[in-house]
């Protein structure tokens, strides 16, 4: 700010903003953040080093809860499953979202309607979406089953949610339906920021569609793709509703995620200390992962 602007500003009596007013304006939000975020976070850390039953008196036990994590087979299994889910949903969502974004990139008749159709599932709550597909897998696909049975391809109806492989697939399909339009929108914003003359140059150089996608579109879309990747992975590592509603972790604990383990420890086994310890570990993992992703992004720039 130039000196002239400064003196001009000082000259106006009312335009001097008192720091105290600013602080008071921000104070209510800050109090909510401290009371409902910082204090519980500190309590979570304390719970993680205590024997803290849902009902009854807590007592300090040091690192006991953390040591127990190593001996808890379900935690290891859930970690592996959550990582697998994150990898699969990342690839599937990015591919479908990019395909949709390419389809609706150019303005033409009806393109707004198409975008709305792809995006509308994102307006449905995750729990409602899961319930919608629960019914679909449970009873709605019986015409498909009947047709396959009639053709002799299967000998009895497919129990979509009752077998580990198809249960996992069922969740991936539901999540793709619910989120593809959301990520399509982010990628669409990225696509539209690529100037037309870049494509014109590629065309003049004789690049075909595939070459243009690989050597022009994808590199220029990198920031949007990176953003989608961070959001998808973070969301997948904290997956809960989709599995809780569709499979409840089953069959045979084959679809138990980390968050399902935490909720079970707390409210099925009534062991808040153990649940807090696992969630502190998950928190630590997420922080490390985000820092790594941010560093990788920064190095690229």
């Amino acid at each position: 700010m130039s000196a002239i602007a400064l003196t001009r500003r000082r000259g106006r009596r009312h335009s001097i903003r008192r720091p105290r007013t600013g602080f008071l304006l921000v104070l209510p939000a800050a109090l909510v953040a401290v009371g409902l975020f910082v204090v519980p976070l500190v309590l979570a850390a304390r719970m993680s080093v205590s024997d803290w039953p849902l009902l009854g008196e807590p007592s300090f036990t040091g690192l006991e809860n953390y040591r127990a994590i190593a001996g808890n087979d379900l935690v290891g299994q859930a970690l592996g499953f959550t990582a697998k889910y994150a990898a699969v949903i990342l690839v599937v969502l990015l591919a479908v979202a990019l395909g949709l974004a390419m389809l609706v990139r150019r303005p033409r008749r009806g393109v707004g309607l198409l975008r709305t159709a792809f995006f509308l599932p994102a307006a449905v709550g995750l729990t409602s979406a899961a319930l919608l597909f629960y019914e679909l897998y449970f009873a709605g696909l019986s015409p498909v089953d009947d047709a396959l049975t009639g053709l002799g391809l299967i000998d009895r109806p497919i129990d979509w949610l009752g077998q580990p492989g198809t249960a996992f697939l069922s969740v991936v399909i539901m999540m793709t339906w619910r989120f593809a339009g959301f990520y399509m929108l982010i990628l669409l914003a990225g696509l539209q920021s690529i100037p037309d003359d870049v494509y014109e140059a590629a065309r003049l150089d004789g690049a075909n569609r595939w070459q243009t996608l690989r050597h022009v579109t994808l590199p220029l879309l990198r920031p949007s793709l990176a953003l989608c990747t961070i959001l998808i992975i973070t969301g997948a590592l904290l997956a809960f509703e989709q599995f809780y509603v569709l499979t409840n972790g089953g069959p045979d604990n084959s679809t138990v995620t980390l968050v399902i383990v935490i909720v079970r420890e707390a409210f099925s086994f009534l062991d808040l200390g153990s649940a807090a310890a696992i969630s502190m570990v998950v928190l630590g993992g997420l922080i490390v992962l985000n820092v790594v992703q941010l560093l990788a992004l920064r190095r690229e720039r």
Binding site: L41, M47, A266, S279, L283
Partner: peptide, 9 residues
């Protein structure tokens, strides 16, 4: 913050 981390306390 993962929501369950903070919901339990």
């Amino acid at each position: 913050i993962p929501h369950p981390t903070i919901l339990i306390p």
